[in-house]
Amino acid sequence: MAEKITIGELHLSGCTGCLVTLADNYEGLFKLLDDYADLVYALTLVDVRHVPEMDVCLVEGSCCLDDKLSVEELKEARAKSKVLVAYGGCAAYGNITRFCRGGQWNQPGHASYVPISEVVDVDLFLPSCPPCPQAIRNVAVMAYLLLKGDDEQKKLATAYLTPLMQLAQRGNEACGCDLMYDVINQGLCIGCGTCAGTCPVRAITMEYGRPNINRDLCIKCGACYAQCPRSWFNFDVMNNYESIMNVIKGAME
């Protein structure tokens, strides 16, 4: 086994659901930590006070501009990590914190919450609220292959991670409305129902073969659009789904 990569989780304005999701891989988390990654920074899981150097930094939560420490730590994490991931809807898109206007306990003065890409450059988005355990597992395995693998593994990892990197370039506003703007209005929807099956708050129903979004329910997590087969579909990866799933399964055995 080649040397491990280092991963940290920077916790900003999030609910810790993303961090718990990492742990929801159960034995899979131990396998990741035994063979592929050292967890060098994370709330409650690692006793390290200051943002260290790391290969991959997962940032959970949006960034509160009214909290100097959050802004400083985020910038420090950017400076000290090779790959910075917006881990979860809040970091990527603001998610539920988009609705915040201050006045909440116990920091009523904190009122301005932005997706982390307003403050730093972000390499990769992993949307949803929370992202699924298997998604972060796959990204962790691919990050390992990217940084420590042989040429072929690097190629695979690059192809796999590319759409998530492109997603980070696309913008930091998400809503169920993206399905209307960028799929249906663009003449691309096929009525598959993936978006409705994906939404964590069941804001989407299928009405006569098209998603109907209950916009008051939508928390702006970005899962539906990212999961839609017509937001992106990269044949170079998907055509090899069987072997890639075996690679991931093999890595976790």
Partner: peptide, 23 residues
């Protein structure tokens, strides 16, 4: 349909909002 099978494979390889579906 073929497009729905594509959606399934994407949900397995990139299970962004598809918890505990892939296997």
């Amino acid at each position: 349909t073929p497009c729905q099978i594509q959606a399934i494979r994407k949900a397995q390889l990139y299970p962004i909002g598809m918890r505990d579906v892939d296997d």
